[in-house]
Design a protein around this nucleic acid. Structure first.
Lengths: 218, 218
DNA sequence: ATATATTTTTAGATAAGTCTAAATTATCTA
DNA sequence: TAGATAATTTAGACTTATCTAAAAATATAT
């Protein structure tokens, strides 16, 4: 049984280990959780004692199989709740993250089973991230970041990789949404910014930073 | 801003003050929360410092107006979630209490506003208890405990006053549910037990303890 | 009305989670 | 590869919420 704080650490460490393929450093965890390295050291000791992380002093942590299962349970809950908020309660995609951060810690397997059923077993959340099933299994849609796409090619937006309110509100403003058809019109070599056409209707310029966070069908 | 634990204390103290009309003793709070009197003393000091209780040493506490508002917010959330679980997720009425105890502490006014809307502004929860509106206002249905009803009279069950699983499962078993028509057939003076007819179909014997917790239209 | 019983509070301890400051280890660079 | 810099850990302190045991106040009963 993991506490609220332990679940948050584990989930974050799992995400970091997916991003960076391997060991996760104390400081990267502290940065992501907006806490201090000393607190992280304390917590990773506890989590490795519980068998969800493996830890070698001064060399960061990796997530164990047991930890992966536990992390995916929390992520499953988070993404199901986000889907509920958008599909049933008419939240915008930029309004769901904070609330889902709280809801993900509610402990009831019946609740999650029934919620999943109520939502008709969704496979992706409102940002296009896959929702693990009760066994922690899921599949990503084949996808590629927009900044890696050649000029002239097009695809459908299948996910956005940053759930920050400001980013999502910006996407709303320029008319980018999951399912939109994107064609890359031009890319500036100097700064990596690009011009894209949305749904064949309108073109907008986006920075490299933005294009890295928009992923389209491969 | 109240913490999780503070919200639980305040809600419980509010319920106790409603039951007993007035001052609430340290021990009654400890009993209800399954904690120790010393812990309660600590907490009521904190809560009176925050202005939600008024406290005189050795003489128990009363809930202030500010406290009443805060308590009713938690109760509103609890009862809306219970309604959601039963109406949308097909929980039985004996399965909702524990989960709602967790969900009631989720902090998002948008969430509660939208949940209320989604449930079509319910006025009563699955046990017949009234759901306060966003201003903390609500009205009880005119109702009376079954044990106080005269032999021969009848009414509709409008609420059950105990949310304990075992009690609710017992009611299921004998066919008692909110909205059922009850006629009091007989009452035994010796122990207060009674024979009731349910929906004009079937009669059952119930103890005084049970009849005190079933309330019908006045 | 006084002794006894009950209730409540205080004092001091514990656990979880966090912090700052200092010490230690690892990594980078010249 | 040695010294400087960066990352990490340790030590000690704080807060919240809890507990036990003892002290103090209130209530009860003869």
């Amino acid at each position: 049984m993991l506490s609220y704080a332990e679940e948050n650490y584990l989930k974050t460490i799992y995400h970091l280990s997916e991003e960076s393929e391997g060991k996760v450093s104390t400081n990267s965890i502290a940065d992501r959780l907006d806490t201090k390295a000393a607190s992280v050291t304390d917590m990773i000791k506890k989590l490795s004692a519980k068998g969800v992380l493996s830890y070698r002093k001064y060399h960061g942590v990796t997530v164990s199989e047991k930890g992966r299962i536990a992390a995916l349970k929390v992520i499953r809950k988070h993404r199901l709740w986000e889907t509920f908020l958008v599909d049933k309660l008419k939240f915008n995609w930029d309004e769901v993250h904070e609330v889902a951060e709280e809801l993900e810690h509610i402990n009831s397997s019946l609740l999650i089973k029934r919620l999943d059923e109520f939502l008709a077993y969704p496979k992706f959340d409102p940002h296009g991230d896959p929702i693990p099933d009760e066994n922690g299994e899921f599949k990503e849609k084949p996808q590629v970041a927009l900044n890696l796409v050649k000029i002239g090619s097009s695809g459908i937006i299948v996910s956005v990789k940053d759930s920050n309110n400001v980013f999502l509100q910006y996407l709303d403003k320029i008319g980018v949404y999951l399912g939109a058809k994107i064609k890359v019109m031009d890319q500036v070599e100097f700064d990596g910014s690009m011009e894209i056409m949305i749904d064949g209707k309108r073109t907008v310029f986006i920075s490299k930073e933005v294009s890295e966070n928009i992923w389209i069908t491969d």
